[in-house]
Nucleic acid binder design. Structure first.
Lengths: 345, 345
DNA sequence: AATTTTCTGATTTACGTACCTCAAATTTTC
DNA sequence: GAAAATTTGAGGTACGTAAATCAGAAAATT
């Protein structure tokens, strides 16, 4: 049988009350006694029964997810995953709530963070927008000992506890590598389509992409980055114009959302010479385009994994427990039409 | 506050004992009363507090992992992950043990399964070898209501509860798609290297690979499959011979283990024309080969994910709880030298 | 040495569920 | 309608930990 607090008391020759004081870092224990108890804990290999502890505390964990609003497919999927986590929450004594803020709006995000802070949650997950004010707001949360996890887009220079998202530089590098090899030496310029350079994930993808293109495939020139603001209509227009302006374009890297616009633009030029396309995020639209051959590969971050990881990490941090590093690393999924997972609605 | 058993009792107008009888499916409750209680449960939205229930039961979960012995890197990594899970086990009242059986040996596996069955564990995870006897042995476990999860290699036709592994047909298809596109029309035969056709995962990968090659890249002929038995020495010899016999070979698909032998063979022919190589399983050796450019892409199944998934599913099945489908789907990771994760020893 | 302060022990209650016993009420059977 | 069988109620103990109280012991201060 696993050792219990009683066993610690017996092993250390102290009372249960003292063990409790040590375990829960309560005051009123001399250093020598505390050491004796800690040695006993070590010696008999005690590990606190978290379930029993939480039961006794009748503790609940209020977690808040701060997500961008807007109608981008990926973010909608992310929100659905948070809702799924909400539904499972009670099983683990967690209560998850969602706060929405306009996309790419640092000021609104800061306001939301401060508002959330006032409710003293057990943890916060946030899709970050990069700005010094946001960093400061996150640091205020941390100063209140509230665990913070950045989700999808990281916040460098902040005191966030963890980033639940993919390595976006690697994603960009991978996109370049795939695109370069799929082109197999066919010369011509390459277009890059982004949402906004205000979010770190997009910038990092571009950096990674540029690095590998320059290094391994110097024959291709990169056209100026198209910023579509993750807006399908704007994107379609800009892409069509760009392709018309550079008719020899052989490849496109779409590193943000707004793929609906890209796909629409591609469909309009059916008879033109083929263009190799690498896009991000597997949605209904990119999946269809992949199957039709309009898109050659999709790099995806699994929103479900990210949300579940964020929840696990928040819980662990709130409990002061350890996180399993390897479990919380989110890999970039590469989908070709040959390894698409079955759709589940 | 969450409703408790007391609330059910009050809502249904029965005693706590009756609620308990209904909840734990004990005999001695009239149908009408049972219905009343179940309706009350539904109405007030009661969910059993699993932590408290397990505490009360002081239940522990003895799980057994049956793994192949031998010195194949992937299986060693898998075993290490099981050990990691063992170490974390006590936190969730799980006791995990490992049973090793010779690789590719159906008879030994059946013996092991029956021996394990005699110990009445709360769940069994097994790397399956396909044979009717193994299926029967697994079904005996299931007949004893012991949850069974197949790990890495599935067992079609058996009553196993779940398969914790990747879609190997998709893996083979993906390999073909990548290889075909990386070759970019360069003609020539393609060699396939397998471990043994006795395990389902290898056969499925080959099937998927063949299908896409035939369909999308009919220009390439497939050389006869080399069966290296996951043995580095044998593999090196066979691969060298095959390459010497077909000097025009442009691609190699290594769908099993034994990559050390393959890499050794590739190194020996440094000056020969380049061969595009797709291999399976990211190990120290394949990682190095990827970085050196000897291998072009590695398809990987994350052993850590598989083990953790198997554990979660076994626990859920033992508890009679639901599993989160999307969480338990194991994706194939595609690694190029550009998206290699940091090594952690 | 007396007093104050700090530390420690003993004991109790609570968390939500499981499981047991025994008696009482109800239903079924003849 | 009585006896038998079944169903229900009431109450308790247990699981391992948290948190509290209060008394007593030890240490520090005067």
């Amino acid at each position: 049988m696993r050792p219990t607090v009683h066993d610690i008391a017996a092993a250390a020759g102290v009372s249960l009350a003292t063990v409790d004081r040590v375990l829960n870092k309560r005051a009123g224990v001399r250093k020598v006694t505390r050491d004796r108890v800690e040695q006993a804990i070590e010696r008999i290999g005690y590990v606190r029964d978290v379930a029993a502890a939480n039961l006794a505390k009748s503790r609940i964990y209020p977690f808040v997810f701060i997500l961008p609003s807007g109608d981008n497919s990926f973010m909608r999927g992310l929100e659905a995953e948070v809702h799924a986590a909400m539904a499972r929450g009670p099983l683990e004594r967690m209560v998850i709530s969602i706060v929405k803020v306009p996309a790419f709006d640092a000021e609104a995000l800061v306001a939301a963070l401060d508002e959330v802070r006032a409710t003293a949650p057990a943890g916060v997950a946030v899709v970050a927008v990069e700005s010094p004010e946001v960093i400061a707001a996150v640091n205020r949360l941390r100063a209140d000992r509230i665990p913070v996890v950045t989700l999808v887009s990281d916040l460098a220079g902040s005191a966030r506890d963890h980033f639940a998202g993919v390595d976006n530089v690697a994603a960009g590098r991978t996109a370049a590598s795939l695109l370069g090899r799929f082109l197999g030496g066919r010369p011509g310029p390459i277009a890059v389509l982004a949402g906004s350079m205000l979010v770190r994930d997009h910038r990092e993808r571009l950096d990674g992409f540029r690095a590998v293109m320059d290094e391994d495939f110097p024959g291709h020139t990169l056209l100026p980055v198209i910023e579509g603001q993750d807006d399908p209509v704007l994107t379609e227009k800009l892409v069509s114009e760009a392709l018309a302006a550079s008719p020899g374009t052989v490849g496109i890297y779409s590193l943000g959302a707004g793929n609906r616009g890209l796909i629409a633009a591609l469909k309009q030029r059916k008879d033109a010479p083929p263009v190799c396309v690498i896009a991000h995020e597997l949605t209904r639209h990119t999946r269809a385009a992949l199957n039709e051959g309009l898109i050659d590969a999709v790099l995806n971050q699994d929103a479900g994994h990210e949300v579940r990881s964020a929840v696990r990490v928040l819980k662990a941090k709130a409990d002061g427990a350890a996180v399993i590093g390897a479990q919380e690393r989110i890999y970039i999924d590469i989908f070709l039409k040959d390894n698409l997972p079955f759709d589940e609605g």
